[in-house]
Computed example of a mutant assay.
Amino acid sequence: MTKVLVIEDDSILGEMLTLYLTEEQFDVERVESAREGFQALVKFSPEVIILDLMLPDADGPILCTRFREKTPVPIIVTSMKNAVADRIQAITLGADDYLTKPYSVQELKVRIQALLRRVNAAQPVPAGAAAARDRILLNGERRTIMLEGHNIETTFSEYEMMKLFMQYPGRVFSREELLNSVRGIDSYVNERAIDVHITNLRRKLERNPKEPQHIKTVWGIGYKFIK
């Protein structure tokens, strides 16, 4: 049974989510504040987080960063804001998906399942790591990237994107293919979000992000990974 942490201070919406997801065979823990959310990360060990961006003790996209620093599990942000810029900011700061209120609980379920498919359907990395020469490794057990022997923390989407790149080195992926592979075709698609992930990965992995040697742009198409 998948464990879902719902961080939502609206009592009516929170209760509705809890009841619906429980009926759909999820193990649900609901809290109403960021403080309680951080406590639940330790006590409940969720596999997915539903995070409202307006909580009584904290609000705004920086919440994504604070939770992402604590856990690698998928985070679905919910918010009243529906501008593209707000979606991009939340994803850049650590969210893996974004739902605008009011939203369908059925759609939320589909998005949870899409994110879990990205985690469960991927082939395991042999012996906890898959090599890209000697410089870059994937640590499958800790879900981190190792750069020259040092662990580099990444978001859920960044890790999944690098795993895809390293499984198919040299293959050119369009932005839409990358986003579908990382977050599922059911999720909100925005090409700008992929560009942001690529920029972040280059900053973390390339010796000179402005002249990348590994994550290459294929103009007019998308990106490819070179070992």
Rank of each mutant, 00 (worst) to 15 (best):
K101I: 09
T100W: 01
M54S: 14
R133S: 13
D52P: 05
Q123D: 09
Q89W: 03
A90H: 00
Y98N: 04
L138R: 00
V119Q: 09
G128A: 01
I50R: 09
T65F: 13
L99T: 04
D57Q: 11
Y103C: 06
R87M: 13
I62M: 13
D96P: 07
D97F: 03
L137F: 10
L115V: 08
C64G: 10
Q89F: 02
P102T: 10
M54Q: 15
A127H: 10
Q106D: 08
V119G: 00
L51K: 04
G94Y: 09
R135H: 07
N120D: 09
A85C: 07
V84G: 01
L63S: 06
L55Q: 12
V77Y: 04
A114V: 05
T65H: 12
A85K: 13
F67I: 15
I50P: 03
I75T: 07
P56K: 10
A132D: 07
I62Y: 08
A95T: 02
P61E: 05
A129N: 01
E107F: 09
Y98W: 09
V84L: 14
L93I: 04
V125N: 00
S104V: 10
V119M: 11
L138N: 01
I50W: 06
P56H: 11
D59M: 15
R142F: 00
R142D: 05
A129M: 05
E107R: 15
P56N: 13
A122G: 09
I91T: 04
L99C: 11
A122H: 12
V125C: 02
V73P: 02
Y103Q: 03
A83P: 00
R66E: 15
A83Y: 11
R68G: 10
V119D: 08
T71H: 05
G94M: 08
A127L: 11
M80T: 15
P72M: 05
P61T: 15
A90Q: 00
E141Q: 04
L51Y: 01
D97M: 06
G128C: 00
A130K: 09
E107W: 03
A114D: 11
